Simulated scan of single mutants.
Amino acid sequence: MDRQELAAFLRSRRERIVPADVGLPAGPRRRTPGLRREEAAQLAFISTEYYTRLEQARGPRPSQEVLAGLARALRLSDAERDHLHRLAGAPPARAPGPSREVRQSILDLLRRLPQAAAIVTSAMYEIIAWNDLAAALMEDFSALSRRDRNLVRRVFLGPHPQGRRLYGVSDADGFARLSAIHLRAAAARYPDDPEVAELVRELHEGSEEFARLWDSHDVAGAPAMTKTFQHPLVGPVTVNCDVLDITDRDQRVVIYTAVPGSPSEQALRLLAVVGTQRMDVPT
């Protein structure tokens, strides 16, 4: 364990975090850059005294649980988390499950795409971030539970309002096959994660289609680059679909854009104004 380097690393990571990034007020009397020690300790679920001793190079070797808490509290990347483990004299632990934390730069990117609908999905196909246009095109994800924001669960188990599968998208069957393939790969990467195992079990028991696809053991599939959403207010919206892999987080950014000057572009512009209001439902 390199106590001096560990102390310096913790201090440097703590001081770079803007309090607002973790939901804390800046306050008029804040004299230290970034988080205070007691704030970092609270976010890591350890005592302030213990955290202070670590930053003063006086602490004992942290346990795996403490290191996981520090990595979460200080918003460390995978590379930084591994470095933290090495400084603490502990082998880097394999991520127990798919990451649900989205980098701030990716969240900023979503907000800077006002004419494109964009979402971020985890390795389990849970929608973990989205912009306003994506919510208008698909659904108000903020009103859903984590469980109901999972696209692979939705395509196989529903709900399917008015018989429309996965928001009436034209490639729903192809998406179902591809998502089963990707979920099998995720299950192999996270064999000890209970949420992944439970999702696979639920889908296998609840959907004959998923069971058939899962039991086929396919490991390759091509995504659709163009798809059409059947929107209840503006009708069909045809979009190009581009997927950007965030390798270090095992996440994907999915961006939907319409051809400039097309009726679908006009439909997206209308949805950007209307938002998630349901004007097709009488009040």
Rank of each mutant, 00 (worst) to 15 (best):
S63C: 07
Q64T: 12
G69V: 01
G69N: 03
L70E: 09
A71E: 02
R72P: 06
L74T: 06
S77V: 05
H85L: 06
H85T: 08
A88D: 06
A90W: 02
G97K: 09
S99Q: 08
R100P: 01
E101Q: 14
E101P: 09
V102R: 04
I106T: 15
D108K: 09
L109T: 12
R111T: 08
R112N: 14
R112Q: 15
A118C: 12
I119A: 05
V120K: 02
A123K: 03
Y125H: 15
I127K: 00
A129R: 05
N131G: 11
L133I: 01
L133R: 01
L137H: 04
E139S: 14
D140Y: 03
S145F: 01
R147C: 09
N150I: 06
L151W: 03
V152S: 05
L157C: 06
P159Q: 08
H160R: 14
H160D: 13
Q162P: 00
R165A: 14
L166T: 00
Y167G: 00
V169W: 04
V169I: 12
S170P: 04
D171S: 14
A172Q: 08
G174S: 11
F175E: 13
A176I: 02
H182P: 00
A185I: 09
A187N: 13
P191M: 11
D193Y: 07
V196L: 02
V196Q: 01
